[in-house]
């Protein structure tokens, strides 16, 4: 996963498997929390899929609203986690 657009694709794919409204498109600035788009299971799935595809551990303590407001805020977290990881392994 290399960009916020890849992350949008990931979220779109997960939402396609749920009962979320089909007409919502996912863009970097889409508000994810206002419309009840994400239920708890979907949020956990997104966190797990990010772990699998971005190569970072997604700490449970980061599963909070501030990180899930938009794909952009979530992408910022992924970049932070990646930076922390490379700082540790360097």
């Amino acid at each position: 996963m290399n960009s916020v657009d890849d992350l949008c694709d990931l979220i779109r794919a997960i939402l396609a498997d749920t009962s979320a409204p089909a007409d919502v498109d996912i863009e970097p600035q889409t508000a994810l929390l206002v419309s009840g788009l994400l239920d708890s299971l979907t949020i956990m799935r997104i966190a797990t899929r990010i772990e699998e595809t971005a190569g970072v551990a997604f700490p449970e303590s980061e599963v909070v609203a501030a990180n899930f407001r938009t794909p952009q805020t979530l992408w910022a977290l992924v970049e932070t986690l990646r930076a922390e990881k490379s700082a540790v392994t360097r």
């Binding site: 708890s40 949020i43 956990m44 449970e60 303590s61 599963v63 909070v64 609203a65 501030a66």
Partner: peptide
């Protein structure tokens, strides 16, 4: 424990 709003994540754990 953790941040405000992190209850469900802890509960999942």
């Amino acid at each position: 424990v953790g941040q405000e709003g992190a209850g469900l994540a802890l509960l999942t754990t």
